Computed example of a mutant assay.
Amino acid sequence: MGTRFMATKESGAAPELKQMLVDSSSTDLRYTGDIAGVPANWLVPSMRMLGLDPENLPAPKGPMRHDHLPEHVKPWKTFWSAGQGVDLVDDVPTVAELVRRLRQEYVDACVTQDMADAARLVEQVSDHPVR
């Protein structure tokens, strides 16, 4: 949920990050500890924007150290991360609008009489049913 709320009008995130979240998907994430010394999901477009090669990242010299990075690369400030929820970001609404949507999705899910039956419908449509 955190990633989804970063891309709201009220968020203090940079406008460029908000747009990157809209434009990205989970395939644009790289899970690595080679940035900040602790594993995180980093946005590959952010790596490229900063001149880093996603396939050849500099190795940290220890946990929570950033002195292996170029001076202009500041994890979480100029170099951005996101969660798997990035797949759900397709616009930059207000917090009120986002909460309204999430509430409606929850209400819609609660109306489903039997969630197991709903899941079976997905299996029937799939080429690879889950057993």
Rank of each mutant, 00 (worst) to 15 (best):
F79A: 06
V73E: 07
Y31E: 09
G62T: 00
P75D: 04
T32Q: 10
A14Y: 05
D53M: 04
A96H: 06
K9G: 06
K9V: 15
H72R: 14
W76R: 05
G37D: 11
R131H: 14
A40H: 12
V95D: 01
V125T: 05
D87K: 10
F79S: 12
H66D: 08
W76E: 03
E97L: 11
G2D: 13
Q104F: 08
E105D: 09
A7Y: 00
L29Q: 12
Q104M: 03
E71G: 02
T94Y: 03
K77A: 10
D23I: 06
D28T: 04
P45S: 04
T27M: 13
W80L: 00
L43W: 01
V89W: 01
Y31G: 14
C110R: 00
W80K: 01
A82I: 08
G62C: 13
V111A: 00
R101F: 03
P54V: 00
K9R: 14
P39F: 10
G62Y: 02
N41S: 15
A14R: 15
M20I: 11
V125Q: 08
S126W: 07
A7N: 03
V107C: 08
T32L: 09
F5K: 00
D114P: 12
M64F: 07
S24N: 09
S81M: 12
P129V: 00
Y31L: 07
M47L: 06
S24R: 02
V99F: 00
A13G: 05
G33M: 10
T112Q: 05
G37P: 04
A13T: 09
T112N: 03
W76I: 01
D34E: 14
T112W: 01
D90M: 04
S25I: 07
R100V: 03
L102Y: 02
A59C: 15
A118H: 05
E71T: 05
P45K: 06
V122F: 05
V89H: 08
Q113A: 14
E71Q: 05
L88F: 10
M115V: 07
G33T: 09
D108C: 02
K18L: 12
H66R: 14
L57W: 15
D91L: 07
L50F: 08
Y106G: 07
Q104I: 04
G85A: 13
P60N: 11
R65Y: 05
S24V: 13
